[in-house]
Design a binder for these strands. Sequence first.
DNA 1: GTATATGCAAAGGGTTTGCACGGTT
DNA 2: AACCGTGCAAACCCTTTGCATATAC
Lengths: 148, 148
Amino acid sequence: MTEGWERRLRDQGFRITPQRQLVLEAVEHLRHGTPEEILVEVQRTASGVNLSTIYRTLEVLEDVGLVTHAHIGHGPPTYHAVDEHTHIHLVCDRCKAVQSVPASRAAGFVDALEAEFGFRTDISHVSVHGLCADCKDRSFEPEPDDPL
Amino acid sequence: MTEGWERRLRDQGFRITPQRQLVLEAVEHLRHGTPEEILVEVQRTASGVNLSTIYRTLEVLEDVGLVTHAHIGHGPPTYHAVDEHTHIHLVCDRCKAVQSVPASRAAGFVDALEAEFGFRTDISHVSVHGLCADCKDRSFEPEPDDPL
DNA sequence: GTATATGCAAAGGGTTTGCACGGTT
DNA sequence: AACCGTGCAAACCCTTTGCATATAC
């Protein structure tokens, strides 16, 4: 569990509640989780927790900097604990595999955007789409359906 | 209008319809458009066209390679004609401004992902989030609300 | 004439909101 | 005790789907 999470909430005027603790634990345990997946995880301990609470709690936890979210394709966002090593998601549009690579691999790109356009990139926020190594080689086969 | 669009459809077994022509024209005219925006544009000429037709048509046009879509934040996807110069969207999470930069700026990053992980990136598919030059300088001010 | 495309309306996911109750401070 | 947080249900937005009709071939 992220150290000092309680202070982080309290210092910004939020209260400590079992739900907030459980959601944070779930995010850290799952490593990658959609709101729905987080709900299921939380309900293993507290079955009464509601989905809307998950949404509201994730928003609060993101506000205080304990979690972030990234978009992986069309579906719901994926949440992460912020203490994990920052990474980029490589999403295969064909087989849907998601590979994480260190955000440092994008340092050159990110720096160039800042130098040239003054744009400060949050590289981990959005995933990178394409074809993974396996699917690249098999790209003549029919798609398994529903490409992102 | 993209040259040879009719062949492109016909060759893949699709029929030529007024709706498909209008949607393609709308996408090219708007340069960036969500399904809803495309509907409005199409309805300036043909008010009877239905939203579901827009969705189905965009899917077909994408299948045959006449348009692509990219995700800009939480909302609906944005469609482009493929003949336009490939570009990346830089989305400011604070002021929501969207800046287009040539995809070539990411060449180094894309090449590195392919060399290191065998991953073939479709860089234009997903937008890059962060803070634009203006907002970076004003980042001490309160946010205007609803960051993406 | 036949198969595909369209319009319409209803259903479906994911997310947000209003409200009254319950818990934290 | 006051206020914030939660559960519940309804509403919301975006997208998809079933079906009957219209249209391209």
